[in-house]
């Protein structure tokens, strides 16, 4: 056993760590069970497919129409769009910082990028609402400047630091032998980086992307202020929409506990949690397969 040869002190410490870890996973489980219980009437009355693929959200009508397809689509557009913008910038930045940047420059750039994570999301949302929305209205002569695209732009800025930090760490973790071998063979710096180091670090870089996607899906304040919160099914990136977190934030304050509106919002929360978990699990499976194949 792993404990063999350890002193009593180590055994106690590792037991404490195990129990704390157990308790925190139980906490996640308890939270899921609580949300499921709160939202149960929705699942049993409307059914999973009716809830997920219904496109009409009128929870106060009698009988209430509760379908969140347009919110799910909005969430995917906003988060996917944010990654579309953030991934090239973030990867480029990470590769630059890890391989090409002169040390003094990297020493300045890195903390600046990390500092972006410390800015509260409401500040980003406020900036976006004050600057981006106006900009779209004036430049493109739109009736109103809120759109999924505007929300994606702000979300991209919010997730870039995560992509940069994690991808850079992944690049630095590549065993130095590869680098030495590459240099010994006399390949160019670009070839070394793009053909040798990046493929070796792809698991970590992919992980960075997943982390960013999860964050972008769950982000609330910025999308609440920028996506426009319309109930229509968005047809393009430049339409307005209402992502799931914005829906919960907007409506939970005015519901009465026990009402089907309240239960429906809990169901929305469950869907959001499961979506984030599913993305994480799915990507992990994919990575494992990549690992075995390569």
């Amino acid at each position: 056993m792993i404990y063999r040869g350890l002193g009593l002190k180590e055994k106690i410490i590792s037991s404490i760590i195990i129990s704390v870890a157990t308790v925190s996973s139980l906490l996640l489980l308890a939270m899921l069970i609580f949300i499921l219980r709160e939202s149960w009437p929705i699942w049993s009355q409307i059914g999973v497919s009716g809830f997920l693929f219904g496109s009409s959200w009128r929870p106060l009508n009698t009988p209430p129409e509760i379908g969140i397809l347009s919110m799910i689509v909005s969430t995917m557009w906003v988060a996917g769009g944010a990654l579309l913008i953030a991934a090239p910038l973030g990867f480029g930045c990470a590769i630059f910082l890890a391989e090409f940047a002169p040390r003094p420059l990297a020493a300045i750039l890195r903390p600046v990028i990390n500092m972006l994570t410390g800015i509260p999301s409401v500040v980003y949302g406020f900036l976006g609402a004050a600057v981006l929305v106006k900009f779209f209205e004036v430049k493109f002569d739109l009736a109103s400047g809120e759109s999924l695209f505007a929300a994606s732009l702000i979300l991209a800025i919010m997730v870039i630091p995560f992509i940069v930090a994690n991808s850079e760490a992944a690049l630095r973790l590549v065993a130095p032998e590869y680098r030495h071998a590459g240099i010994a063979l006399g390949v160019s710096r670009q070839y070394l980086t793009l053909r040798i180091l990046v493929p070796l670090a792809r698991k970590g870089m992919f992980g960075a992307l997943v982390l960013a996607f999860g964050r972008a899906m769950g982000e609330t304040m910025a999308v609440l202020m920028l996506a426009g919160n319309t109930l229509r099914l968005p047809g393009s990136w430049f339409d307005k929409g209402e992502p799931l977190p914005a829906l919960i934030a907007l409506e939970l304050g005015s519901t009465t506990p026990g009402s089907s509106h309240h239960q429906a919002l809990f169901a929305v929360g469950l869907v959001l949690v499961l979506m984030v978990i599913a993305v994480n699990i799915g990507i992990n499976l994919l990575l494992n397969r990549l690992q075995k194949g390569g």
């Binding site: 009508n61 109103s144 202020m225 426009g228 919160n229 319309t230 307005k240 934030a249 907007l250």
Partner: peptide, 11 residues
């Protein structure tokens, strides 16, 4: 009468 589904909902 339901509010238009294109109406901006402002927090």
């Amino acid at each position: 009468t339901p509010i238009s589904d294109e109406a901006l909902q402002i927090p």
